[in-house]
């Protein structure tokens, strides 16, 4: 096995174990911390693909910002198994069935692709570097890029508006 393969299997095992622990942890704070470890191993996979920018942005945005907000909410609400109302048995069965069938569809879709995918390395090893990524984003995909940034801006304005103290002037 080459070093890349060893790292790949190590990161894969780590990601899957972390993902399972997210589901099986009793304590929601532990779930969030396991989810962070999943993001780390996925960042490792990005680095193996030489997509350093994606790897680090994944860490900054998901592990550094979104998960911190999750932790905020969960820590302040202090949820645990005793105080939280449990979902009914039928709901749990339905959830596992639908989740399981989604996984089945995904596995079936990905089963035959192994021969057809042309690896990123074969195209160009530098394709994931920030220079190429920026050029692609601002030339080929400039319209979707700008539209999504407008979407983020509107979400931001909406959040500020919701967070403001409600006065009569806004309603009327």
């Amino acid at each position: 096995m080459s070093i890349v393969e060893i790292l790949f299997w190590f990161l894969t095992a780590l990601a899957l174990f972390g993902a399972l622990m997210v589901v099986f942890s009793k304590n929601p704070v532990h779930s969030v911390l396991w989810l962070i470890s999943v993001f780390f191993s996925i960042s490792g996979h990005y680095i193996l693909l030489n997509a350093q920018f994606l790897a680090i942005v994944n860490m900054i945005v998901y592990a550094g910002a979104i998960m911190v907000l999750f932790l905020f909410v969960i820590m302040l609400m202090n949820m645990n198994t005793e105080s939280e109302p449990q979902k009914s048995k039928w709901l749990r069965i339905a959830a596992s069935l639908s989740g399981g069938s989604l996984m089945l569809v995904l596995v079936a879709a990905l089963k035959d692709t192994s021969g057809r995918v042309t690896g990123v390395f074969k195209l160009d090893g530098n394709i994931g570097l920030i220079k190429n990524l920026g050029q692609v984003l601002f030339t080929d995909y400039v319209l979707p890029f700008e539209i999504s940034s407008v979407l983020f801006l509107s979400a931001m304005v909406g959040a500020v508006l919701l967070g403001k103290k409600e006065t009569n002037s806004i309603i009327s």
């Binding site: 920018f53 680090i56 860490m59 900054i60 592990a63 550094g64 910002a65």
Partner: peptide, 8 residues
């Protein structure tokens, strides 16, 4: 960006 990742 690595520095910012670690800081976050």
């Amino acid at each position: 960006l690595y520095v910012f990742g670690v800081v976050s």
